[in-house]
């Protein structure tokens, strides 16, 4: 497996490059993940939630709607953080800025570059999700000590979404084509992964379909940890995330090589 053996510690140099760019504009980078969950909590939790009189049943617990919603916002930020970074931002670096070409003339291999980009994408998920987590924890919608594991989930989940995103980046002919994965994959996940409502309100087939979606597992894991619930979902979710990450990473490295090495 030369795709694996070509990865080295040097990929961290690319990670540091992206970190440095991020830090030069840190003020604009930290504000959205801080404000966005507050907007959602107010609109969906307080506004929309006011219409929901009955408590939500989840894993044998009954919760008010806003508390059910809050961990879903963390999961969504994990998905968007890495997916945006490794689609639009990676594509700009690869296609318009020719950053990958420049770096390929240094001791980094293409696999190092892909790995560095994915590590950075996961870092973005980690940063955004940790900020969102801080906000919901401040409102008391996530509990200690379970919530302490959520940053770890956000990084691992970030690796998964970053690898998935990199797969599309290797394939799309131009930036507009990202509309397809966003419209066909990301938006349905945003809505139907147990983020805004519990999946048990769906018919059986709908629940099974939802379980195939990556975000469902991240959402379940974030929610179980927020409520200090040790469930089988944590193990199932971890296995799912690791497997999908491995497959997407290898496929994206292979396809990127095909695209860039001529």
């Amino acid at each position: 497996m030369s795709l694996i053996s070509n990865i080295s510690w040097r990929s961290m140099a690319l990670w540091k490059r992206n970190r440095d760019v991020f830090l030069t504009t840190w003020k604009t980078n930290f504000l959205p993940p801080f404000l966005e969950p507050i907007l959602y909590l107010v609109a969906m939790g307080l506004g929309f939630g006011a219409l929901i009189e009955a408590d939500i049943e989840y894993g044998g617990r009954s919760l008010e709607y806003i508390k059910f919603l809050a961990p879903g916002l963390v999961a969504i930020s994990i998905m968007y953080g890495a997916f945006f970074e490794c689609t639009y931002s990676s594509f700009v670096r690869m296609y318009y800025q020719k950053t990958f070409d420049a770096i390929l003339a240094t001791p980094l291999s293409l696999e190092d570059i892909i790995a560095g980009e994915i590590l950075w994408g996961a870092t973005k998920s980690f940063i955004n999700a940790t900020i969102v987590l801080g906000v919901i924890a401040a409102f008391g919608y996530a509990e200690f000590p379970g919530l302490l594991l959520i940053p770890l989930i956000s990084f691992v989940g970030g690796l998964m979404f970053a690898s998935l995103a990199m797969l599309f980046t290797a394939l799309v002919p131009n930036m507009d084509s990202f509309n397809y994965p966003f419209f066909l994959l990301i938006t349905p996940m945003f809505l139907f992964s147990g983020t805004f409502f519990p999946l048990n309100v769906l018919p059986e087939w709908g629940q099974q379909l939802a379980m195939t979606l990556p975000l469902t597992h991240i959402s379940n894991m974030a929610r179980d940890l927020s409520y200090n619930m040790m469930s089988a979902e944590l193990a199932i979710g971890a296995a799912y995330v690791i497997a999908l990450t491995a497959v997407c990473f290898l496929a994206s490295a292979y396809l990127m090589k095909k695209r860039l090495v001529k």
Partner: peptide
Amino acid sequence: VAPQENNLDPDF
């Protein structure tokens, strides 16, 4: 390597 194409990093 000084490539033909300008691929300096515009972010820096």
